[in-house]
């Protein structure tokens, strides 16, 4: 069946490229708190990994999705050439207030800078220049992700989906390396999480446009914060966070 070819499909190839772990933005160096969770004996197998990923998706994943979606929308508003950098800077400030752990703030800004740098080379766009100018110390990763998604022709739902994909695949890949888990079993976990990730992306998308930045989601993950701070003091570690 040929389907209805006149209806424009949501861009897929650009989303797959952006969400791909091989996209050269440095995400592979981060375990999303999993390395510390493994060291603490809290994640030991696929069952505990699934519980970790479920909690991470619902907390830091949901926050990242909300801000990526909102940043994507903000990048598409304003004049034709320039993004609404006032709203984008406000989102960055609000995301910082939702990221109390200094180690996670630093990791997020580093990843945001790397993503922005990669995107400006891969697909230069005025919105990316505006973002770099508005946040000279580098945007937080979800703010960068949302803006980059917009410049790739993606919408807020895709930006949120990419953020959630990143929130679980990073730690899942790290689990294979750190615990020697069966990659098939780990991907079975990811497949089971898929409906929840879609639900969270829908929720982020629903608040991308009309919701004031201060009212966006702020779910906390105390243990991820504590893990991150402890992890930052280690002398030897495999992952940057």
């Amino acid at each position: 069946m040929s389907g209805n070819r006149s209806a424009p499909a949501a861009p897929t190839a650009a989303l797959l490229m952006l969400a791909d772990g091989r996209f050269p933005a440095g995400g592979h160096a981060h375990s999303g708190g999993l390395e510390a969770a493994v060291a603490a004996g809290r994640v030991v197998d696929t069952t505990t990994l699934e519980a970790f990923l479920r909690g991470r998706a619902a907390t830091s994943g949901a926050t990242a999705a909300a801000f990526a979606a909102a940043a994507c929308t903000a990048a598409g508003s304003g004049s034709a050439k320039t993004a609404d950098t006032g709203r984008t800077a406000e989102l960055d400030t609000e995301y910082e207030a939702r990221t109390p752990a200094p180690a996670l703030r630093a990791a997020s800004r580093k990843l945001g800078r790397q993503l922005l740098r990669a995107a400006r080379t891969i697909r230069p766009a005025p919105a990316l220049d505006a973002l770099a100018a508005a946040l000279p110390a580098g945007p937080h990763q979800p703010v960068a992700l949302g803006t980059v998604a917009h410049t790739l022709g993606l919408g807020p739902h895709a930006a949120a989906a990419a953020a959630l994909h990143d929130a679980v695949t990073g730690p899942a890949t790290a689990a294979v390396r750190l615990l020697g888990l069966d990659p098939f079993a780990v991907h079975a976990v990811l497949a089971r999480l898929a409906p929840e990730l879609d639900r969270l992306a829908d929720a982020a998308d629903a608040h991308a446009a009309g919701t004031p930045a201060h009212a966006l989601a702020a779910p906390a993950a105390p243990l991820l914060d504590i893990f991150a701070e402890h992890h930052a003091t280690w002398e030897v570690r495999l992952f940057a966070s």
């Binding site: 909690g55 907390t59 910082e96 207030a97 201060h214 906390a220």
Partner: peptide
């Protein structure tokens, strides 16, 4: 804004008692 966090626990909060939260 300096700090904004919402702690969610109980049956409606996925993974809240798991090793990330």
């Amino acid at each position: 804004p300096l700090y904004d966090q919402e702690l969610n626990a109980g049956p409606d909060a996925p993974g809240w008692d798991g090793p990330a939260v």
